[in-house]
Write a protein that binds this DNA or RNA. Structure first.
Lengths: 200, 200, 200, 200
DNA sequence: GATGAATGAGTCTTCATTCAT
DNA sequence: TATGAATGAAGACTCATTCAT
């Protein structure tokens, strides 16, 4: 019984969150109204307040699952750490794999808001960037140590990997057409670029 | 006489815009109020409307000078295009040179707003990304043609260069501490990274 | 169920309109504030916007029922058209019958606003004056044709009838005391005046 | 010297008033702004305040000359009081003579404002209606006494005369086309109508 | 729990008025 | 005296939130 209620509750909550993601991504958190979200979710305004304390709680509800997963999560995709090129390939492939339309909508909301909301920024940066760095830096260091990568500052390079992903996300979210059209070509291209360099 | 009034007018306009940049960067365009901007500029609310039609005109006033310059502008910094490594160094150096605190504030505002405002996005993307690509792609292609870079898709690589810059801007704006602390190390590091690659 | 909500809705709407009539008549449309109307209706400011799009919609809400009726409407009062004197008596009696305090308030608002608002003027004039003329002119003509009135230009006379009514409305609205005190004597007096003339 | 200054002062004042009449008649007193009037008069906003205390003083400046004259003034047009029909003719002719475009503009402003402004209404009614009645009633009474008019309540008839004029002013101001087109036919028509009546 | 009308604090914007030049 | 920029009070309108049904 409790389980059934719980189930329904969870579903309705998720349903509202999904509507919120859509609406916030389209209009922005501040411009979108609770009425907009309610209309999208096909519930009454007041109903939303049965599942979320207030408008900001909606935003957090969108943000936190994302935080729980990290930006390069999913045990579903393995990450080979034995070979530098494979590692780079896997890193980008994983990120690209995560970047489906839904998560891009979420990133649109999160980026837009985190840029100007210090609290959100603090939470997000620590979790997302932190966990991404923790994932890359040790591996890069181990490659250098093992002599399979040339000596370089892994702290900086790990940031470069993240920056590349963030940068491409921005290019997509800002509507760059080439980025969108050739989206699937980038993981391999970037892996090569970083592994081989541009020099002859 | 006309010149004097014009001068004062320009100065006051610029003064208000500066206040707006500060306030919008701190609170975000939608959360910041005209009263906030007026207080920061130490003028009355109504005075702002002597210089700008409405709140959105303030945003555009911030945005357009930026657009006029492009993201990698400044005839002040030359860009050597004879040598691949020099070109990459100059490219990043130039971008980093542009990214002073004031322009980062502007980017904070523009990114945050462009992510959720299609019109702004259209203008910004076309101008900023477009002009940046026009700057990189032909040079990359000429290097490949001349045999001083290994063959690669310049369309993709030019996006990668821009994505790196955008990505690092995001890392800074999102408050990543390492990025801030080691900010000045990145241009050289990135130039090397892209030129030599990580392979041994 | 729908009927109940509809009913409440209509009632509240009418209640707000009534308050608006009172307030607009007292202060004038432009001087009266939404807060004034809300206070008179004993609702919050925002509530008014649940029933009317904006302040002008309130004005139109006041105006349109009036327009639907015409200035000399009401099937309740018959208008004898067999005898000239009876016709004149009925015409004025009818108008006077319409001119209760509530409709005088409405006329105060409409006249004041229509004098300086071309759109309102166009709508009002066409409907109100037009329908009044359509009512008088044919009858006057038929009386002339039948020989029960002396020959005269019915186009001009029909305007004179309307002008008399409008003029007395103005005298009342402008606060002329004699007009107010002897209000009920005018229909008969005017009918005689126009029928017999002043000549001996 | 003083006379010269005085002269200039008077002229400028009149110039501003003229602009105010035009602007107020077009937009209405409350909708028109001081800036509108200043633009029409081709002076700066502040200049108006050198000649008038505030916006309401402008309105009064428009109104008072009107009051000083009364609505049926002008010693220029004689009013024959020996013969009923001549008297009626002269009365309407005089009124019509006063109703030039400029004074109609003034009446548009005054009527619109007096309808909703009790103070203005009090002043206006007392002066305008009062003086008009003083002009008609005694003459009507004398005609009755002399037997050149049939017995009737002169108090009511004098109001009817005024109401007719006011009513036709309203018909014009509200944009009735027939009234405008046949404007000059009304004085004679109305004099006949009231003198002879409509009866055969 | 769901609903959606009511609320009223908060915002943008206007404009009469002032006053330094 | 003329000017017109600065002022800030005031008003239309929005919308997150509450709560009676």
């Amino acid at each position: 019984m409790k389980s059934l209620k719980d189930q329904t509750n969870r579903l309705r909550r998720a349903h509202i969150l999904e509507a919120a993601v859509k609406v916030f991504a389209e209009k922005g958190f501040h411009v979108a109204t609770i009425k907009d979200v309610a209309a999208e979710a096909k519930v009454a305004d007041g109903t939303i307040y049965n599942y979320f304390d207030n408008k900001i709680a909606l935003l957090m509800g969108i943000l936190y699952p994302q935080l729980d997963e990290g930006v390069t999560p999913s045990a579903t995709m393995p990450l080979r750490s034995d070979d530098p090129h494979a590692f780079l390939s896997d890193t980008f492939a994983r990120s690209w794999n995560e970047l489906n339309p839904k998560s891009l909508d979420v990133l649109r909301i999160v980026f837009s808001e985190a840029l100007i909301n210090p609290e959100l920024r603090a939470v997000y940066t620590e979790r997302m960037i932190g966990s991404a760095v923790e994932m890359n830096r040790p591996t890069l260091r181990s490659f250098v140590k093992a002599g399979s990568m040339r000596p370089h500052d892994a702290e900086l390079s790990s940031r470069a990997l993240i920056a590349l992903v963030f940068g491409f996300v921005m290019l997509r979210l800002l509507g760059d057409e080439v980025t969108a059209q050739r989206w699937d070509n980038f993981p391999a291209h970037l892996a090569n670029l970083l592994h081989e360099g541009l020099a002859t």
